[in-house]
Amino acid sequence: MDNDYFSIDAILAENQKIQCTFKVDVPEVGHLGGGNDRDIKAPAKLPIPIWLAYIILLSEWADLTIPAPFGPRVRNALKAEPRSVRLSTLVGAGGLWYGFGKMIMDILDDEQANIMSDVLTKAFRGRLTEVIDQAQHFATLGASGVAGPAVDAAQSFREGLDGTERELFALAQESSKRTKRWYESHDRARQGTRR
């Protein structure tokens, strides 16, 4: 999530393209857009990988369009009910929606970045409780798993977790499993004789 050079998460989150609108003609780099044109002409819209976009945006060759995973449609859906948005489908399997958002946020100017930060933070907090609830629920279940139609909404929520939330889910599940195991263990007699 941080922009550290060595952070694997940051590299994975960078695996996205963003739409840029070119303001100037750039000669000899038409292949960037995947087309056959030799040059990029002024109002061209091209999806550019993030690592390349930084320098293009900084040199003011192009304007950034906020990518669809953070567009108004998703924002409204998040505002309505953060838990019903499937973040993973927005950024592809194993995608890091928050990481990607953080990167976009760093590119944007202050005012927009603050709005973006609000959207991300609210979404995260809105979904957090549900993540933990489900993680704890799954920690109490055996390997048998769950069945029944009542779990549909929960399952769709789980499938929609983004990479960061998955990590949290695993952490919460592991620790509550461990605590539960301790509460239920009865190896006292053995310990006592060993000491």
Partner: peptide
Amino acid sequence: FFIHAMGVLTQL
């Protein structure tokens, strides 16, 4: 998990 969640929030 609190530590992790707070770390994420700090980033966001």
